[in-house]
Amino acid sequence: MTMVRRESLADQAAELLLARIRDGEWEVGGKLPGETTLASQLGVGRSTAREAIRILAGRGILATRQGAGVFLITADASEGWATALQRADIVAVIEARTAIEVEAAALAAERHTSEELEALENALNERGRHRAEISEHVETDMAFHRGIVIAAHSPVLLELFDGFASRSRQAMTDMLRLRGRHGGDDDHGTHEQIYLAIASRDIEAAARLTRAHLHALQEQLS
């Protein structure tokens, strides 16, 4: 049995699982083994197997039915349509982030304390150290942006950011998978510029740089 390499990510496990599906291992409408069995067969942990199932479900190939298990819907789903829907969903999330984070950046530039600025610098440095693996990159990126919202001293914006965090995290993860790259020097440099604008209390630059960053993310999905 072919095994996923130890360093593989969930999308590699999803591709291996898809290859088995297309080889006819399960019939359309049939039930797949449970996560524990699939994890063992693929040579990955349960969480990775669960994520691989989620990836294929998002492409319309599998369906998870509460209390019943995972079922094969089709081996020939149109990846173009599924990807188009995924891109549209990510764009909607970026639009919502823009509404929250541009104003937060402007307010943070105006209102931040020295302690909050230090915490934001630490979050930026942590982001810079965790750019290799998607999940860590997304988590440290979100921590940096949350630090900006905290420094804005706006309880409503913070509530909106936290309430939206789970959806934002998933959308950013999906976006990076679609794009096929992440954590580049240009991207991190943009975040450094946003930090410096906030640190220098340049309200206009903080808002403009944040808006430009999020708009660039959206453009890359066009």
Rank of each mutant, 00 (worst) to 15 (best):
M175E: 09
E25Y: 08
G128V: 04
N125C: 06
L209V: 00
A106V: 04
L221K: 06
H145M: 05
M172P: 02
G45R: 14
G163F: 00
K31W: 09
Q12F: 06
T2I: 13
A49G: 04
L196M: 02
A13T: 07
I53A: 04
L107I: 06
A212Q: 14
E7K: 12
E126R: 15
A99Y: 11
L176Q: 05
E118G: 06
A88W: 10
G184H: 08
I148A: 06
T98L: 12
V91Y: 03
L221H: 06
A123V: 02
A108K: 04
T190V: 13
R97H: 10
E110S: 12
A212N: 14
L196I: 00
G184L: 10
R129V: 08
V4H: 02
I194V: 15
S166V: 15
A39V: 06
G183P: 04
R97I: 11
L176G: 00
R211P: 05
A13L: 08
A57R: 08
E35I: 01
A77V: 10
F164G: 01
L217H: 13
T173V: 14
G80Y: 01
A77Y: 10
I61V: 15
E95R: 07
F144M: 05
D174Q: 15
L56W: 00
A39Y: 06
L209C: 03
L56D: 00
T74F: 01
F71W: 11
G45D: 14
D76T: 11
A14Q: 08
G180V: 04
H191V: 01
D76I: 02
L158E: 13
I150A: 06
L38V: 10
Q12S: 10
H182L: 11
A57P: 02
G183T: 05
G147Y: 03
A119Q: 12
G24A: 11
M172D: 07
E116Y: 11
D23R: 15
D202L: 03
A63K: 13
I148K: 07
L85H: 14
L38S: 11
R208F: 02
A132C: 10
E51I: 12
L158I: 08
V93A: 05
F161G: 03
L124D: 01
Q220I: 02
G45F: 07
T83Q: 01
A199G: 06
A105T: 05
F164D: 10
T173L: 14
R169A: 13
A132L: 13
T74I: 02
H130K: 13
A13V: 09
L85A: 12
I203G: 03
Q86T: 11
G183V: 05
L107K: 15
R211C: 09
G80M: 00
E95T: 01
L178Y: 07
M142R: 14
D89V: 02
M142G: 15
H213I: 01
T64P: 02
A104S: 13
T74E: 02
T98P: 04
R54N: 11
R201Y: 08
Q220N: 09
